[in-house]
Nucleic acid binder design. Structure first.
Lengths: 254, 254
DNA sequence: CAAGCGCGTTGACGCAGATCAAAGCGCGCG
DNA sequence: CGCGCGCTTTGATCTGCGTCAACGCGCTTG
């Protein structure tokens, strides 16, 4: 839970005339709602930033002055209770859009778990952009709707699934993630990379570090997965893991 | 968990020329994005339905052919696991919009807990309407954003709060609900009505019926609330309850 | 008004997962 | 290369909440 903050974010010095036109994440983000000839409008309001791991670039409660679009790396989004208990509500990879809130202050914090590159948009400027490009607003609605569905799925996980089912769900979800969201080459369809720590996984799944570790060890012992290294899991029996994740496997309850 | 279904929904016979113009829920729903003179367009695609308590009007997995707008009463939205475990992801009162999902099938089920009135829109027709009224799309994005914030708050509750904190949060949230969402006259600012059963509350908070009951009894014993009847709670010490809900109260953990 | 039923409350007990504690283990650094 | 540090794993124990069971209460029904 180490937090680096209160230092200015690094504005990337390598930006050229129109970065949006060459942005690898564009195809997968809301930005693809704006077509080629209007990309300079987009580039004009976007500020590119580089963020090192551990850096917190959104703080819950701060005035929500900006929107962010992740172009590389992964962030964890989380909420804290006064005594330090933490709930990670999601991980945001390339293409992910942050800061949708209507409210005037951020309702969550965001911290980089890997080196990141993000685009920052000031709210007023993005608002103006949205008024000119209704297609982008449509895309935002789609994105928000999908996140809502994912959030409901996560509520089911947090409210009703066992530790074993939570880990299975997490691994399956990671394995089904589109390649561009991961920000790295896929070793194999069944190789899942975990850039976050056990503590992050625990806070995402509503468990403790120890339970995450123990449960992964158990899944390995049951021949469902292999753990070649701390941040790599290979799914051995995808169907079985899937059935546990879905809450359909009777031993999944134990 | 009694489910009434597979019978046709009742199309309300009392509809007149332009119901939308007289709809009490309009002011609080996405429909207020369409102004007076265009309301007949809206009314033309809306079908009003009456739904009795216990009736399931959205089934998870069914083709998502319609959107719904709640105009009266309350529904519970939920997801099920194969063995019957249930997570209620929210309660939808007047003004609430349902079925945003981009996917072609519903990602959750919805069942009336009180007598309801809802407006049904076919997806293609609503899509056409949205294309003509971008203001409505904007409203939908706002609504979705707010729900996303609420969903994240609920993840914090489900993943990290104690039973006592969950009940406190639930009661506080209900007490702060705008009047139009409740669908009844407010007895007092601190009187909370609970139209849903203990089982619903438990499935919403990720607890069991027994724990909900015990915890409410405990809160009463601590002088924080009164429970004049099963479906009514009076908040006695709002600040104290609030502090427990926020996870700030040291005894809130016990 | 008695019987039946759904819902809520209360009590006794059990267990999944939290907590407390102590090793491994990989990795950067002097 | 050896040391230290952060992360992970593993073990022992504890506990909040779940499970099982009994009972109460209000409402409906015959």
């Amino acid at each position: 839970m180490s937090v680096t903050r209160a230092r200015p974010l690094l504005v990337d010095p390598h930006r050229s005339g129109n970065d949006c036109a060459h942005c690898g994440a564009r195809a997968h983000s809301v930005c693809n709602a704006i077509d080629g000839r209007d990309l300079d409008r987009l580039a004009a309001v976007a500020v590119q930033l580089s963020i090192e791991p551990g850096r917190c670039f959104i703080d819950e409660g701060d005035p929500a002055e900006n929107f962010f679009n992740v172009t590389a790396g992964t962030a964890k989004l989380f909420k804290l209770l006064p005594d330090g208990r933490r709930q990670i509500t999601g991980f945001a990879g390339p293409g992910h859009f942050l800061g949708l809130a209507v409210s005037s202050s951020y309702s969550f914090s965001a911290e980089a778990v890997e080196p990141m590159r993000i685009c920052r948009f000031s709210r007023p400027k993005l608002r103006a952009l949205l008024d000119d490009f209704p297609a982008m607003e449509k895309r935002l609605l789609e994105v928000a709707s999908n996140e809502l569905v994912a959030a409901q799925e996560q509520m089911l996980l947090l409210g009703r699934k066992t530790a074993r089912e939570r880990l299975a769900s997490f691994l399956i979800a990671r394995s089904e993630m589109p390649v561009h969201c991961l920000g790295h080459k896929p070793g194999s369809a069944e190789t899942v990379l975990l850039p976050m720590t056990r503590s992050d996984i625990a806070d995402y799944l509503g468990l403790t570090i120890e339970t995450v570790s123990r449960t992964l060890t158990k899944l390995k012992g049951d021949g469902l997965i292999e753990i070649p290294s701390t941040d790599t899991v290979v799914i051995r029996r995808h169907a079985a893991l899937d059935s546990i994740a879905a809450g359909a496997d009777p031993v999944g309850h134990l």
